[in-house]
Design a protein around this nucleic acid. Structure first.
Lengths: 243, 243
DNA sequence: TTTTTTTATTTGTCTGACATTTAAAAGTCT
DNA sequence: AGACTTTTAAATGTCAGACAAATAAAAAAA
């Protein structure tokens, strides 16, 4: 683990990269303890604050965790799906909120991924996951439900659908897309009419899933996508010309 | 922007979170300059090193960039797809390499996503993207090509296919899955026979894409997935019982 | 043997300083 | 006056040394 002495700037970034490479390449294995900050400072011939900045960079990516005390130190972290989720969500949220990407593009990506999941889900979903979906549909039909609660239930419904694919990699990829769109979805103030339509589509999806009818699941998701995009367009138009 | 004074540990993490929230919520907008480190230290009532650790955490997530000099400082970064790619790749690579997820699961996820892209790609791909795919197929057929070069060309081929969907969100999601699998794919030492088969499948995909035959694109990708998983199984078996 | 106390190690944080970079301000020359 | 050079101020990058707090192992006491 060496750093390039020719580039003097950003020592902490270089050190972070050196350690990151060691982790990714397997040179450092999970739960292995890194040398203490003082030792690392000696090895890299920098001061302790610089080493600490490097370690904080790695901690921000959940690559290491630190522990205080006598037997403490920095340990290589086993990247959990939880960690991967939250990073994915942060990244996706920023991509959307910074106008790098339009709602339509995000929506298309989201449903493309979701339909891919749904195909697997119609083969593998458990009774429990289907029950969750039904329960969420029931909640969505409650009168007096706030928009936020409706949206949260919507996310839970789709989450159950996606988890039905029983592929954590797919789930974690989609989590970002779905959750990142939440704030924008909340902005689409749902009328009673539009809720009814969405609940109807959700029911169609759940029914098709129960029958294991792959094509019908796909179709109803496609209809839901079209409807979502229509709602978004309407809101965008109303905002442009508020009569 | 405030931090909770009751939890004394990990001040830099709290400060990072406070600034992160301000960015995600839009309180701080793109290219806006943060207060100087000294000013932040005053505001949060901590020392400069602590502020710096917080800023390095944010820099590790590409949320800010720093500039030295008189008009320098920390600026809110516009998250580019490039940045999102590389984070996605790092995360996915670690998820795979740390045995959190099996090759089969990753493979399934990857092809599920890729098939979702391919559907869009068969409608939207440009002549240029198709030409890239043809060129990569040609390269793959060259005798004397190293395994590494063959794999790199394979990635380039799939990259062109995915980019044909003309949806950057999908592209960035898939980049992680595809690139993370590279090292494992390299381990599958390709025989002349298996290369031939893969090239044949690639050709089928390109042909179907040229005709705009969505179903055939989907089918040939499915065949490629099955074949890839078979190769992986064979390698795994040979490793277990090296006769 | 069990409990308590001490001790050593390590991270977390602070203070103060100097180096380096950078752009603007001030000065100088034509 | 205008163009070039020098100075200066502000900011990040880095360092050294110190103390606080947490923690587990070792030592001491019951």
């Amino acid at each position: 683990m060496k750093i390039d002495p020719r580039k003097p700037a950003d020592l902490s970034a270089q050190i972070a990269q050196a350690i990151r490479d060691a982790i990714v390449s397997g040179e450092l294995i999970v739960d292995e303890r890194l040398p203490s900050e003082a030792e690392l400072a000696d090895q890299f011939e920098v001061s302790r604050p610089t080493v600490r900045e490097a370690l904080k960079r790695l901690a921000a990516q959940s690559l290491i965790r630190t522990q205080r005390g006598a037997t403490g130190g920095a340990f290589v972290n086993r990247l959990s799906f939880e960690d991967a989720y939250s990073q994915q969500i942060t990244t996706s949220t920023l991509l959307l909120s910074m106008n790098t990407v339009s709602f339509d593009t995000a929506c298309e990506a989201r449903y493309a991924l979701e339909r891919a999941c749904a195909r697997l889900s119609s083969e593998r979903r458990t009774a429990d996951q289907l029950a969750t979906m039904r329960a969420e549909i029931f909640r969505q039909a409650q009168p007096g439900l706030t928009d936020e609660a409706f949206c949260a239930s919507d996310v839970a419904f789709h989450r159950a659908l996606v988890d039905g694919a029983r592929n954590p990699v797919l789930s974690y990829q989609l989590a970002g897309a779905v959750e990142a769109m939440q704030p924008l979805m909340n902005m689409i103030t749902f009328t009673a009419r539009s809720r009814e339509e969405i609940i109807s589509l959700h029911t169609q999806i759940a029914d098709a899933l129960e029958r294991g009818d792959v094509e019908e699941v796909d179709d109803s998701l496609l209809r839901l996508e079209k409807y979502t995009r229509k709602l978004a367009r309407d809101v965008a138009e109303k905002k442009r010309k508020p009569a």
